[in-house]
Computed example of a mutant assay.
Amino acid sequence: MKKIIFILGAILLSISLSAQNDLLFDSGNKSYNEGKYQEAIESYEKILNEGVHSSELYFNLGNAYYKLNRIAPSIYYYEKALQLSPKNKDIEANLSFAQNMTIDDIEVVPEIGLSRISKSIINRFSFDTWAIVSITLIMVFAILFLGYYFSSATSKKRLAFIVSSSAIILAVVSLFFAYQKYQYVQKDKPAIVFAKETDIKSDPNLRSEVVFTLHEGTKVQVLEIYDENWTKIKLTDGKTGWIPSEDIKLLNNI
Rank of each mutant, 00 (worst) to 15 (best):
I117P: 07
P86Q: 14
L137M: 09
L84G: 11
I121A: 15
I122C: 08
A93G: 05
I135D: 04
S115G: 06
V108F: 09
E111H: 04
L146S: 11
A93H: 13
I138P: 03
R116I: 01
T129H: 09
D90P: 01
N123H: 02
T129Y: 10
S134V: 00
Y78M: 07
S134G: 06
L84A: 13
D105Y: 06
S134L: 01
I135L: 05
G113E: 05
S134I: 00
M139K: 07
F125T: 01
F125E: 08
V133L: 08
D90K: 14
F127Q: 05
K87Q: 09
M139G: 10
E92Q: 15
V133S: 07
M139Y: 06
I103D: 05
I138M: 11
L137T: 07
S115I: 02
K80S: 10
I117R: 14
D105C: 03
F141C: 03
T136K: 09
P86L: 11
D104F: 01
L95G: 12
N88K: 12
I121M: 13
A81H: 06
S96A: 14
W130D: 06
I106P: 04
Q83P: 01
E92Y: 09
L95Y: 12
I138V: 08
W130A: 06
K87I: 00
Q83R: 13
I122K: 11
L137A: 08
M139H: 06
S118C: 14
L114G: 10
D128A: 11
A98H: 02
T102Q: 06
T136M: 08
I135F: 05
N94M: 02
F125G: 04
A98I: 00
I135E: 03
N123G: 03
P86W: 13
D105T: 03
E111W: 02
Y149V: 01
K89N: 13
P110C: 09
N94I: 00
I122M: 08
P86G: 14
L82M: 08
Y78N: 12
I103F: 07
I138Q: 09
D105P: 01
T102I: 10
F97C: 04
A131W: 05
T136V: 05
M139L: 10
F127L: 02
S118P: 06
L114T: 08
I112F: 14
K80P: 01
F145M: 12
T129P: 03
D104T: 03
A98K: 02
E92P: 03
N94S: 03
P86F: 14
K87G: 04
V109R: 15
F150H: 10
G147R: 07
